[in-house]
Design a protein around this nucleic acid. Structure first.
Lengths: 121, 121
DNA sequence: CGCTTATGTGACCGTATAGTCACATTTGAA
DNA sequence: TTCAAATGTGACTATACGGTCACATAAGCG
């Protein structure tokens, strides 16, 4: 679970992090959380963007393995794949959990340590 | 916890998502998890990059509130702020937790449902 | 005080990317 | 069979951004 294996997973997760950095793509993920959606349905959820733009985002999500699709005739169904999110949690967020319980305490400590010296900030 | 409040938090978290999309910045976060670091120490951790490049990343992290700094004379100490990560978890990852316990099951179900029809893929 | 160390800022540049558009193919319905 | 619906692909464009560089300031030390 540690060492090289994590490093390898971290490398794989770069695409996931990049995919999630865009708000439209996060919104697509949210929509898919409620159940599968056709490409057309996703497109119509973003009236301010052309369908090519939305499709481009769909493609990025798919390449990051956050989305899988199935064709049914002329209809393409898109499904959420939450596994990479789990990887994000395991590799990343969980490692900081022991930090954030004390995060505000740590910041207060820094503030207190700095307070006697007024020439800083 | 739901509705407008979440939406507001989501907007705030855009900077966090963007900040974490870069591998160098994630590496900086990892280094800070072990304890505060001077800018120079962070710079020396990336021998393949100029100090200006590293400093630029530090700035992005700071603007995303993932990092706070304190000056001590000519030395700048950088501290991890894990709170936005907690926000990421609460706003994002946790919402998908009920998804990923069944994620593989869902994907298998899709695969099984598709299997009888061979003209799809 | 002179020199070194630690850090800061703005300009520049090549690459990436979000989004649009032109043109296209395939499937479904009447 | 014709037309509509659903989706696909590559080119283009403006903006973003990761990284370098020139020049700078401020603090520390002997």
């Amino acid at each position: 679970m540690d060492g090289g294996s994590d490093h390898h997973l971290d490398h794989d997760l770069d695409e996931v992090w990049k995919a999630l950095s865009d708000p439209t793509r996060r919104a697509i993920m949210d929509l898919l959380r409620d159940g599968r959606k056709t490409t057309g349905e996703l497109v119509s959820s973003f009236p301010g963007m052309t369908r090519f733009g939305v499709m481009k985002h769909i493609r990025v999500l798919e390449e990051a393995h956050l989305l899988v699709h199935r064709k049914e005739g002329r209809t393409r169904w898109n499904y959420l794949n939450a596994v990479p999110l789990r990887r994000i949690y395991e590799r990343w967020v969980s490692k900081y959990e022991d930090q954030w319980s004390g995060a505000l305490t740590n910041l207060k400590h820094i503030a207190e340590a700095d307070e006697p010296k007024e020439n800083q900030t």
